[in-house]
Amino acid sequence: MPPVSLTVVDAPPSRSPLATAARRFVRNRAAFVALLLLVVIMLACFVGPLLSPNNAIDSDWSSISLAPTWQNMHWFGTDELGRDLLVRTLVGGRVSLEVGLLGTLVSGLIGVAWGATAGYLGGRVDAVMMRIVDMMYAIPYMLIAILMMTLFGRAFYLVVLTISAFSWLDMARVVRGQTLSLRSREFIDAAKAIGVDSRSIITRHIVPNLIGVVVVYATVTVPGIVLTESVLSFLGLGVQEPMTSWGVLIQDGAQKLESTPWLLLCPALMLCATLYAVSFVGDGLRDALDPKDR
């Protein structure tokens, strides 16, 4: 009987969950293009004003209320004071994005801590903590924001804190729901069996397993906070001059829509493009990180 030769076939290398999610995200063309657009907008807002020959504050008295033109690099036109609208839109976008990112960070930290603690401890602690959340939902948020801006001024940090004070409620509910499903898992029982305290279980075992959900929901929170800041600025309760934002520019352009429509259209288009890009990126992350689709 002739000897039998065995051929060893190399198994394909296994991919990490992060690499798999990244590959799935790249395959989503709409989400990937939206991510590229978002990166371009952020680079333009944070770097563009430094490279532009024009200034967001200085006036060009020879180009007052100039329509969009290639002359003097006024691509978005100028306002009634001769200030370049492109640079002001980019500077305003920087402020709006900073409010959105910082507000999401603050609200995310509060929401994750609150929801994870309530979901893991359960019982009366969970009942009391979530009733507090329900009571805060009943508070007219916009009225409180207007009241705080009126009483304490319109400083940048106050805008962020005011918006973040109510933006963590949805995050807390989402995190609590995920924590309720995680606390009965085997690795949590093993941590309890070896004497790990509740604080360490929450910080080392519960929260790391919620990163995917938190990241996806943060992409929903960012456009909401940016839009809220724009609404407050449109009402005249946002940041103060010389600082500007997309909401301030839209509010100023709405007053001069008939004579200088570009003052409204340019910042409004930038705001809409950013909100749509963040939304598409969030949808792509949700699909890429969903374990049911793997």
Results as ranks from 00 to 15, higher is better:
A34I: 10
M130T: 11
F152Q: 03
S233H: 06
Y157V: 15
L264Y: 01
V87K: 05
V33F: 15
D189E: 15
K292I: 07
V106Y: 07
G177L: 07
V112F: 02
V26W: 11
L265R: 12
G103P: 03
V226C: 00
L81I: 02
Q255K: 15
V95Y: 09
V215I: 12
V133W: 08
D170I: 04
F187P: 10
P140Y: 03
F152T: 01
T228Y: 04
E186G: 14
G123A: 09
L102I: 00
P223N: 00
Y141S: 14
A30Y: 09
L35C: 06
V226L: 04
A288P: 01
G236W: 04
N54F: 00
L264T: 12
M136N: 02
T20I: 13
R173Q: 13
A113Y: 08
L102C: 00
D126Y: 12
S164R: 02
R154P: 01
V159C: 01
V4I: 12
R23S: 12
I201M: 13
V112R: 03
F280N: 06
G224M: 05
V215W: 05
G93D: 08
Q251C: 06
L151T: 09
V26Y: 11
L289D: 12
E229P: 04
I188L: 03
M149C: 11
V278A: 03
R286I: 03
V278E: 03
P242F: 15
E241N: 06
E98R: 01
S167L: 05
D58H: 10
G77V: 00
L90G: 00
L109P: 14
R23L: 11
D283N: 11
L235E: 03
P140C: 06
I194P: 09
W70D: 12
R94M: 00
V47D: 00
L38Y: 11
P49H: 04
I146C: 08
A145V: 02
G282I: 02
D58F: 03
D283M: 07
A118E: 05
G92V: 04
G195P: 11
S164H: 08
R83E: 05
V220K: 02
D126E: 15
M42G: 05
Y276Q: 08
T162L: 03
A127G: 13
W168S: 00
A19F: 12
T260M: 12
L151V: 14
L102F: 00
L158I: 12
L81V: 05
G100V: 01
I202V: 15
K292D: 04
R88V: 03
